[in-house]
Design a protein around this nucleic acid. Structure first.
Lengths: 240, 240
DNA sequence: TCCAACATTTGGTCCGACCAAAGGACGGGC
DNA sequence: GCCCGTCCTTTGGTCGGACCAAATGTTGGA
């Protein structure tokens, strides 16, 4: 029997649509940095959306770093290269179809080495059996996925994300796992590609390798292993 | 004449108060991860605040990573160690009177070394005259503040933040300055303390020292200078 | 020419009502 | 006894109108 797959149909709210519309205008260059936005009442008239929702959308865009709102003066397009946060970057990548530029990819990998590398080092130097058990449990989940004849790449990406966030979590640094959460959509995309390029088994094997190096207390070894795999990925990316 | 300083009196909105109240309940443990919140209408009845405002508050808490809202089902307390971002942490610190725990301070400094250290290294290895001029211009602003007999600590903190973000910006990595923006409130608090402890002049002098090391192309020197100043600050903190 | 008084516009906040969808309760058909 | 529509209740999302205080623009008199 032929099974039809439609999947979940998400109904976007008006607020979401308005946010995306304005993001688009800004990122496409139709609205430039410093340009003033129409007043909330003008937007209300244009879009036939209530002022309450308009206001909520503008506040969300401000939190994302796209706008600069001054009470009783209006909103202007913010210099999002300066005031932006990771959410701004996520929105930029999402509007680009989920694809990063090469420079962004290199920046991302550099940031990954800086953060996860520091976590790896620290965890190798100082860890408990509980830390190791925590990571092993996640590895087991990855192994379970590998046993299927057609491993689910999305599910495996999720597990790999949790594994590497686990490294940050168990490093004892309270900031590192939160930073990884900020990167989440970008990291998930990265793992999907990595699985597509190097295969599912290879990625899980690498994860196990980190665990061995941590258990052995080899901080420098773990760090260099990360550097090496990053460079492999980047050189593979540059070839395309 | 004796000048009395009162400062700006901010009138908190109902929305703000409600957000803080719920944050408090969550962080104090009265509301645990997975617990359902009362419906918006129940909250309306309890608090005598209109549903629009209630709704806006809940959405803000969702963006901060404290809640998980499902349309037509309700809101539950999110696992903020899983879904939390830097904003969650900022909220936690703010509710603690703006004071970080010692562990948080150490985590922060470690993260700073990881990120800003990488930026310093890269900028020292590869920079243009324009990069140097950019940073010099910010240093000049700091010097201008120093010339006043009673330097404004808040203004100087702002300049120091822009300076160090400038280092990340000019490093060429697109992620680093965004990460610093996420840290912003924490970093500002840090500079205020650093100025209080070591003095304004000392902090500006240190900033100039980084510039010299960058100009000389001394990547390792710049990195170790950062490590050293971080350790000085931390040991000073531990004494208290 | 200057400046004080007034009018307009702005974002921020609040209200009470309505909407569509999800879940539960009910009941008829097998 | 079990299944599956049908109805009702509850839910978050939206709406349009209202008011506020501050910033800006305009006017008119000295």
């Amino acid at each position: 029997m032929l099974e039809m797959q439609i999947g979940v149909i998400e109904v976007p709210t008006r607020k979401t649509l308005l946010v995306q519309k304005i993001e688009e205008q800004i990122l496409s260059g139709k609205l430039r940095v410093g340009d003033p936005l129409p007043s909330e009442r003008q937007l209300q008239e244009e879009t036939h959306i209530s002022k309450t929702v308009i206001h909520a959308a503008l506040v969300e865009l401000e939190q994302k770093g796209f706008l600069e709102i001054t009470p009783r003066r209006g909103a202007i397009v913010a210099n999002y290269t300066e005031s932006g946060t990771m959410e701004t970057l996520n929105a930029r990548i999402r509007l680009n179809g989920g694809n990063m530029t090469k420079k962004q990819s290199h920046s991302f990998m550099e940031a990954r080495i800086a953060i996860e590398g520091a976590a790896l080092r620290r965890l190798a130097e100082r860890h408990t059996d509980e830390d190791l058990a925590y990571l092993e449990a996640i590895i087991d989940q990855a192994d379970a996925l590998l046993e299927q004849k057609e491993p689910d790449a999305a599910a495996l990406s999720e597990v790999l994300f949790r594994y590497h966030r686990g490294i940050c979590l168990r490093s004892g640094n309270e900031f590192f796992p939160l930073l990884l959460n900020e990167f989440r959509p970008i990291i998930m995309e990265f793992w999907l590609r990595s699985i597509a390029v190097f295969g599912a088994a290879s990625n899980v094997h690498l994860a196990k390798r980190y665990l061995e190096l941590i258990r052995a207390g080899d901080a420098e070894g773990a760090f260099h292993r990360l550097e090496r795999s990053v460079n492999e990925y980047l050189s593979c990316l540059d070839e395309q």
